[in-house]
Amino acid sequence: MNSIQERQEEIIEEFSMFEDWMQRYEYMIELGKSLPLIDEKHKTEENIIKGCQSRVWVYAEMDDDQVDFTADSDAIITKGIIAILIRVFSGQKPEDIINAKTDFIDEIGLKEHLSPTRANGLVSMIKQMKMYAIAYNSQQNNKA
């Protein structure tokens, strides 16, 4: 299994092949369609990432010592963004998720989605995923 770092590098390489924004967004829309969908029963108010435009739900489960994420959104570009994050973080150890850097966002040309005016900004999604990791990490530590 690849590390978070390796997965980020893979994504950077994929995105580097695109010549313009249109190809990049077409790819993101494709990725959005392949998003590991959250189970309907987890599409609850508490799993929603509050934003002003599109709605995003993220859910996490522990599988052995790894965190698995599922998500959904009513906007397809947002789904593409969350799919990229899930590809990076899903199946990783909580500790690794907590410590992961996310500079790759910049490199794949999605910096504009980091702006706080963007509803469901990437920042809130990353924060939510890291919060899950922190919660599972402390659960593990308590058991140990």
Binding site: Q53, S54, D74, A75
Partner: peptide
């Protein structure tokens, strides 16, 4: 079938400023 956010994001890439949302 399309979310206003998606439309607004792509229009912006084409230089067109509209408002999307509530």
């Amino acid at each position: 079938g399309l979310h206003p956010y998606d439309i607004g994001t792509l229009l912006d890439k084409m230089g067109i400023a509209v408002r999307t949302g509530h």
